[in-house]
Nucleic acid binder design. Structure first.
Lengths: 152, 152
DNA sequence: AAATCTAGTTCTATTTTAGAACCAGATTCG
DNA sequence: CGAATCTGGTTCTAAAATAGAACTAGATTT
C-alpha cells in the first residue's frame, strides 16, 4: 500500500485545504482554539481525544503553520498552542460548518450552542456568497474555472 | 477499543457537521457533485479513490441525507448521485475552505482553479461574517454561547 | 523532600484505508 | 443474436491510523 493519499500538490484549493485540516480532529482542535483553549490538557479533556492522537495532531498543525507554540501566559514553564495568522483564517470555514450543522442536524426542540456578536449578544448573520458587485450568488450561479484558463 | 468516536449527539453544531462530512473523502465528493459530477465512475476516476471507499462513502452520504440517488439522466439503467437540499447547503463551507486554501497554501506564481460568477466570469467576492445589523465581524468580536444559556 | 500535575511517549488491539482481484447485470459491437 | 466490453459495485489482503492504557521526565505544589 502506498500510504494515505496526499492532496498537497492539487490544483484545487479545496483539496489542499483538506490535506491540512481534513482529518477527524484538526477542525475540532482549531474550533477550540478559537474559543480560547491553549493548553494540552485543556484540549485533551475538552475533546476527549487520546493523548497520543492529540500530540501528533498538535505537532502536525504546528508544522503546517496553523498553530504555533508560545510560552505559557500564566508564567509557568509550560507552553501553549495558539492560532497563527493562517490558522485564524479558518474562522469562516468553521462558521460555515456551524451554520450547516444548525440548519440540518438538529431536530426541532433540540438545543445547540450559538455564535453571537460579543458586543451585544445577538446571533451573527448567515454567511452569504456575493459577486464582485455585491449581488448574492447561489451555488448554481457560480462555476469553477480551472487553473490556467482565461485570466489568471 | 471502542470504535471511532461519534460526535452525532454533540451540542456543538460544528462537531455534528464533522461527524457527517469530517472524513477524508466526503467533502471532495461533495465538491465534485457541485461541479456536476453524478456517476460512480466519474467520481472514481476524478478523485482517484479506491472503488470500495467510494462505494461506502456514497452509501453513507446517501443515508445521512447529503446525497440521493436518481435514475441516470441519459436514459440508461444506471443511477446517479445528486446533492439533496441539505447537501447543497454545504456550498459555503466548501467556498470557505477554498478561499482559505487559496490564501495560505499556494506559493507565489503557483496556479489554482478559481470560483467565478457564471454570468460574467468574474471571481466571486470574499466571504464575510456580519453582525445582525450588517457590521463585519472578526473572529475575536464573536463568542460561542452554550446551549441553554441566555435566549434560545 | 515527597506527592502530584503536565505534557507528553510508547505499546497493543482494533479499525480503517488502499489497492487489487473478482463479479453480475447493462450496453455496445460484429 | 452472441461476444466483448463497460458500469457499478463486492470481497480480499496488507499496511496504516486510531483508541486507550501504561509509563515517564520534568515542573509545580504541599
Amino acid at each position: 500500500m502506498v500510504k494515505r493519499v496526499s492532496l498537497s500538490g492539487a490544483e484545487c484549493p479545496v483539496a489542499r485545504a483538506l490535506d491540512v485540516i481534513g482529518d477527524w480532529w484538526s477542525l475540532l482542535i482549531i474550533r477550540d482554539a478559537f474559543e480560547g483553549v491553549r493548553r494540552f490538557s485543556e484540549f485533551q479533556t475538552g475533546l476527549g481525544i487520546a493523548k497520543g492522537m492529540l500530540a501528533t495532531r498538535l505537532r502536525d498543525l504546528t508544522e503546517r503553520g496553523v498553530l504555533e507554540t508560545a510560552p505559557a501566559s500564566d508564567g509557568s514553564a509550560y507552553k501553549e498552542y495558539v492560532l497563527t495568522e493562517s490558522g485564524r483564517g479558518l474562522f469562516l470555514a468553521i462558521v460555515a460548518l456551524r451554520q450547516w450543522g444548525e440548519d440540518h442536524l438538529y431536530r426541532a426542540g433540540e438545543r445547540h450552542s450559538v455564535l453571537v456578536d460579543r458586543t451585544n449578544g445577538d446571533p451573527v448573520a448567515r454567511l452569504e456568497l456575493q459577486a464582485s458587485d455585491g449581488r448574492v450568488l447561489a451555488w448554481n450561479e457560480t462555476q469553477v474555472r480551472k487553473a490556467g484558463e482565461g485570466a489568471d
